[in-house]
């Protein structure tokens, strides 16, 4: 069994399984506001497969990155709710 990886979500470190997507990891951590819409309402994954762009978060400083297409990586820094 490969060891967990450490990701930092909004400044807080978490250990997550190594072979999952960032979207799954964030949902398992209880994140509901992946991004905020024009009226600041929370949005979260819808399609799970890269189509809808609802799961976009900031990954290592890169804005609007689709969490459902990103594997979790050791040391990954994520900002949600932007």
């Amino acid at each position: 069994m490969t060891p967990d990886v450490r990701i930092v979500v909004d400044g807080v470190p978490h250990h997550v399984p190594p072979d999952i997507t960032l979207a799954a990891a964030l949902l398992n951590l209880g994140v509901t506001a992946f991004r905020r819409d024009v009226r600041q309402e929370a949005r979260a994954p819808l399609c799970g497969m890269g189509t809808c762009f609802e799961c976009r978060v900031t990954v290592d400083g890169v804005h609007n990155t689709r969490a459902c297409l990103e594997p979790v990586r050791e040391g990954m820094s994520v900002e949600c709710g932007r």
Partner: peptide
């Protein structure tokens, strides 16, 4: 339908297969 927690059916399947518990 824009509330977090509302997903597609294939979307739920994809998320489960991607590690959602």
């Amino acid at each position: 339908w824009t509330l977090p927690g509302v997903v597609g059916i294939g979307g739920l399947q994809a998320l489960i297969k991607s590690g959602l518990t």
